[in-house]
Every structure is written in structure tokens, then in C-alpha cells.
Design a protein around this nucleic acid. Structure first.
Lengths: 228, 228
DNA sequence: TCCGCTGTCTAACGTTGTTAGGGGAGAGGT
DNA sequence: ACCTCTCCCCTAACAACGTTAGACAGCGGA
């Protein structure tokens, strides 16, 4: 038969459907995700999916949760010292970004869909634990974790969408960045003086350092709060 | 005839198509946006759209740009004093959030699509000007503006998606928040101890104060950088 | 008058999400 | 042995979608 699953437990389960959707998303891009293709991926006809899943919306929720499969919690046991909390939060943020960036196509489709499943709450729990563990109060912990997570996701969304779009168009990241820079520099300078001036700074491929900058500012802000 | 445009200059232009798409998005939600309906909204058959627009993707880019029509630049003229830059950045951020939140349905569809048009760069230019005006260097300005914008968009995305989804489902924001809290509280406490403990703090409808918190931390971080 | 351009139309293509209804395989009871 | 029930998949079809091809009406200029 044509399309058969390749990994994991055999049956047609909700879990396998979510995995298949994710696999398809990553392989064929956002437009390549249809019920029929997901069905084919698990070796079944499209209508059969509706036995396991209410509709496509629910499948996407499942996929959004399955995205976090294998997102390991921080190296267990070692409690976070009061001095090292900054570094711990930093590596947690970097891991978060890396994980999302590794599924750029999925991020593009599933953005804003994180919450329905328990697995997608893993990162939140991890960060909450970190903050509470070093003395932040309940309210501050909740707000700080929320700030950090929304920022990382907003950042990665901006990073992943052009990446995934460029790939779909058959361009390298470097080309895409260069084109973005040119578009900025070509703007009317009297209306957008600073954008034109900073075109080079804004559209470089140096996303790593940009992420580090934002993270440092955010952690500085949290440190100031903690110092009170 | 059935559907006719109601405002603006008469012809079928790219601009009017973008407006119609935006209007439709807000009125009927994300699934209500089809080429046929946009065409009907401007009083024309679907195929005619392709004279003005390459495809739906391009229409959405246009709409993402048109979202920023009427986003007035800050009260002109008055230069920002070195003491007031914090407040200025804060009101700029609040205006940004309010503007996005006023088009929650559109945000849900157009997320990550901000960049193609010049109008959507207005907020960026505004913030760049502010930062440069108070002494930040070129690189810091670019990174800081990027951080701020990505955070606001990530925040609003998380805020707008459940809002728009709940409305589609016919629920009030309060009900949606209560349901979210219950879902968090019902999680396995041994796997997600902090999420369960902080369910109340995390899922309250107090989005305004949560936004203010994140903004304050970010501005604190920027202030620390500037003080060096 | 004829030409070419602009902007719309009708008709159709293939694909999508989704529903209705049928059927077979296996378990369990009698 | 038979019946029945539940589970799971099937085929067939629907309306709606994005998109293309090609024809036609109105227009300005040669």
C-alpha cells in the first residue's frame, strides 16, 4: 500500500494523527497540511479521521501539544542557587527558542494555539518553578513567566515566518535577509528616516545576538524587581 | 445588486480590497474570509480579484498593511526629554497593544505577516525615533525596538486568539477565563505543581496589569543599559 | 473604422473540510 | 452455532474554496 506510518506504535490513534500532522507540516509546509494527506500518512482514508477527531481544528490543537513531546525538563535534582537563577532562566529561554525554531513551519501554523494540551504547558511550569524557587512572589512569578514566554514566542514567530516563507520560495536565509535590508533601505527617507538609517542593523541575520539582547534586558528588569 | 461597498473611494482598487478583507475578517471571523466573499463585499465576481492581486497571499499582505491605516504617529513636534522617554515608550506600547487588540480577528490571521507593507513599519519607525532621540546607539536602538515590538505582538497574540476563539464559540471573556483557570487547576498536581498553585494568577482577566508588568520590566532593563 | 488596453464576466478545474451511510471484523452472550 | 453489539474503516457525495482560461464590453487614440 502507498503511505504507511514509519515510527511509533502502530494503531491509528489521536497521538499518531498529531504526529503525522506535525511531520507533514514540517515536510511540505503550511499549505501541505490537509486531512486527506494526514490520513494517507497513517495509511487510512480521510473520512476515517473523523472517528478519532472532531474536526481539523481539534487535530491542530493536538498537533500543537505534540510539538512539545520530547521537550525535556531541566536537568533534574540540582536546585537553582540564588546567584545562578539568571543563567538558568537564560538557558531555559534559549532552549525554548531553539525548540520552536526547529519546527518553523509548525510555529507558523500553530502560533497562538499553545495552551490546549498539557504538554505545551511544560515550558511554563519549568519557568514558574525557576522563578518561585529563587524567591519571586506568586503574582510576580506568574507575570514574569507570562512576559518571558510571550516574548520568546513573539520573537520566534517573527523569526520563523520569513524563514519558512523563504524556504517555500526557494531562497536561502542570507538572500532573504539581504532582500529585507534592501526593502528597508529603499523606503522614503523623509517618512522613515530611522528605518532607512538602521536598515543594516535591523535586517541582519544576527538573530542570535538580537535574542540575547532582549533576554538580557528582560533579565535585568527582573533582577531589579527582585532586588527590592 | 446585493453586496456593495459602503465607504471610501469607489473603484475596485488594491486598497479597497484590503479594506474589504479587513472588514470581513472582523465581521465574520477568520473562517469567513474567502476570495468570493471579499469580491462580493466590493460588488464584483471572485475571478475579477485576480486582475488586481496575484493571489490570496498577496491580499493578506495588503490587509496586514492596511491594518495600520489611521495609526497616527505620536503628537508631532514635541521632542522627547531625557527624563520622559520611559513614559513615551510606555504610551507608545500601550497604543500599539490597543490598536492590535481592536482587531483581534485580524491579528489571529495576520500574525507574523507584519513587514511587507510600509504602513506596518510605522510603529517601528516611531519607536526607533524615540530610542535614538534619547541617546541609544544604532545597534542598541535596533535591538531594543525589535525586542519591544516582538514582545507586544507576542503578548497580544496570546491575548487575542482566545478572545477571538471564545467569541466565535459564543462565550464572554469572563467565562473563557474561568474555564481556562479550571483547566489549569485540574492538571495533575504532581507533574505541574506550580501551574496548579498559580492557576488563579495566570488565567485571570487582568491582562492590563500583566502587560504593565512586562512593560515595566523591559523598560527597567533598557534604563539599566542606558545608565552605563 | 480598427486597434489595443482595461476590467469585468462566465465556466470550469482540482482540492479542501465534512457528513451520510454501509460493511466487515471481532468479542461476548445464549 | 447464531445473534448482537461496538469499533473502525470504507465509498460516495456535498458545498465551498483558490485559481485559471477565455470571452466580451467599454474605452481612448490612430
Amino acid at each position: 500500500m502507498a503511505g504507511r506510518r514509519t515510527t511509533g506504535a502502530p494503531g491509528v490513534t489521536r497521538e499518531n494523527l498529531a504526529d503525522a500532522a506535525l511531520r507533514l507540516l514540517e515536510r511540505e509546509g503550511p499549505k501541505g497540511l490537509s486531512m486527506r494527506k494526514v490520513a494517507a500518512e497513517v495509511g487510512v482514508q480521510a473520512a476515517s479521521l473523523y472517528w478519532h477527531v472532531r474536526n481539523k481544528e481539534e487535530l491542530l490543537d493536538l498537533a500543537a501539544d505534540a510539538l512539545w513531546e520530547g521537550y525535556a525538563p531541566l536537568p533534574e535534582g540540582r536546585t537553582v542557587t540564588a546567584e545562578a537563577w539568571r543563567d538558568c532562566l537564560a538557558v531555559a529561554s534559549h532552549r525554548l527558542r531553539a525548540h520552536l525554531l526547529a519546527h518553523a513551519n509548525a510555529v507558523r501554523v500553530l502560533a497562538g494555539r499553545f495552551a490546549p494540551g498539557p504538554r505545551s504547558l511544560g515550558p511554563m511550569e519549568e519557568i514558574l518553578a525557576l522563578l518561585r524557587g529563587v524567591g519571586f512572589g506568586p503574582a510576580d512569578t506568574a507575570d514574569a513567566a507570562y512576559t518571558l514566554l510571550t516574548w520568546v514566542q513573539g520573537f520566534v514567530l517573527h523569526e520563523a515566518v520569513p524563514m519558512s516563507a523563504a524556504e517555500e520560495h526557494g531562497a536561502t536565509p542570507g538572500e532573504a535577509a539581504a532582500e529585507a535590508r534592501e526593502r528597508l533601505a529603499a523606503l522614503p527617507a523623509e517618512r522613515y528616516p530611522h528605518l532607512v538609517e538602521l536598515a543594516g542593523e535591523l535586517s541582519g541575520p544576527g538573530m542570535d545576538s538580537r535574542f540575547a539582547f532582549g533576554l538580557a534586558r528582560l533579565l535585568d528588569g527582573l533582577e531589579a524587581l527582585r532586588a527590592r
